[in-house]
Amino acid sequence: TTKIQIRLADGSRLIQRFNSTHRILDVRNFIVQSRPEFAALDFILVTSFPNKELTDESLTLLEADILNTVLLQQ
């Protein structure tokens, strides 16, 4: 498993454990389930350093190389 910290656009944080085989789409779905107010918003996930937009949501967390990292919601 891996721990992902997500810094949300409103300044708050979410921390969740995922399997390395989960997909970026699963992280997006977790955000929307945790904070339904973001469901209607068009947002992207970005790595904190170096900044990289995670546009291919079909990638696993392992394939995207974002295990144990911080993601930013923009």
Rank of each mutant, 00 (worst) to 15 (best):
T1F: 15
T1C: 15
T2I: 14
I4P: 00
Q5P: 05
R7Q: 15
R7H: 05
R7K: 15
R7D: 12
R7M: 14
R7W: 05
L8Q: 02
A9D: 00
A9C: 15
D10N: 10
D10P: 07
G11N: 06
G11H: 12
G11F: 11
S12C: 05
S12P: 03
R13P: 03
R13C: 10
L14M: 07
L14S: 05
L14H: 11
L14I: 06
I15G: 01
Q16C: 12
Q16Y: 09
Q16G: 15
R17M: 09
R17P: 06
F18T: 01
S20H: 11
S20P: 14
S20A: 13
S20W: 14
S20E: 13
T21M: 10
T21Q: 14
T21E: 10
H22N: 09
H22E: 14
H22K: 05
R23Y: 06
R23I: 09
R23C: 06
R23M: 09
R23G: 06
I24K: 05
I24D: 02
I24A: 06
D26H: 03
D26G: 03
D26A: 00
D26L: 01
V27W: 07
V27G: 08
V27N: 06
R28L: 01
N29T: 05
N29P: 08
N29L: 08
N29W: 06
N29R: 07
F30M: 03
F30A: 10
F30P: 00
I31D: 08
V32S: 11
V32L: 11
V32Q: 00
V32F: 01
V32I: 10
Q33N: 15
Q33K: 12
S34W: 07
R35H: 11
R35P: 04
R35E: 01
R35C: 01
R35S: 02
R35Y: 08
R35W: 04
R35Q: 00
R35D: 01
E37R: 02
E37K: 03
E37V: 01
F38I: 01
A39F: 05
A39H: 06
A39W: 02
A39G: 08
A40I: 00
A40C: 08
L41F: 12
L41D: 12
L41I: 14
L41H: 14
D42N: 15
D42P: 12
D42V: 10
F43I: 00
F43E: 00
F43P: 07
F43A: 09
I44R: 12
I44D: 09
I44N: 03
L45Q: 02
L45Y: 07
V46L: 12
V46R: 10
V46T: 06
T47V: 01
T47G: 07
S48N: 02
S48F: 05
F49R: 11
P50G: 15
P50H: 12
P50N: 15
P50S: 13
P50M: 06
P50L: 09
N51Y: 15
N51Q: 15
K52D: 01
K52Q: 10
E53Y: 05
E53A: 12
L54I: 04
L54H: 06
L54Y: 00
T55A: 07
T55D: 04
T55K: 13
T55H: 13
T55W: 10
T55E: 07
D56N: 11
D56A: 08
D56P: 05
D56Q: 00
D56T: 03
D56L: 02
D56K: 03
D56S: 02
E57M: 06
E57N: 09
E57K: 05
E57A: 07
E57I: 10
E57R: 02
E57P: 00
E57W: 06
S58R: 07
L59T: 07
T60A: 04
T60G: 00
T60Q: 02
L61T: 02
L62I: 11
L62T: 12
L62P: 06
L62D: 12
L62R: 13
E63G: 05
E63L: 02
E63K: 00
E63Y: 00
A64I: 07
A64Y: 06
A64W: 07
D65W: 04
D65Y: 04
D65S: 04
D65G: 15
I66C: 14
I66P: 00
I66M: 07
I66T: 09
L67W: 10
L67H: 14
L67M: 15
L67F: 12
L67S: 14
L67E: 13
L67I: 11
N68A: 02
N68W: 01
N68D: 14
N68E: 08
N68C: 04
T69M: 08
T69I: 09
T69D: 13
T69W: 11
V70A: 13
L71P: 06
L71F: 14
L72I: 15
L72P: 02
Q73L: 08
Q73H: 09
Q74F: 04
Q74S: 02
Q74Y: 08
Q74D: 14
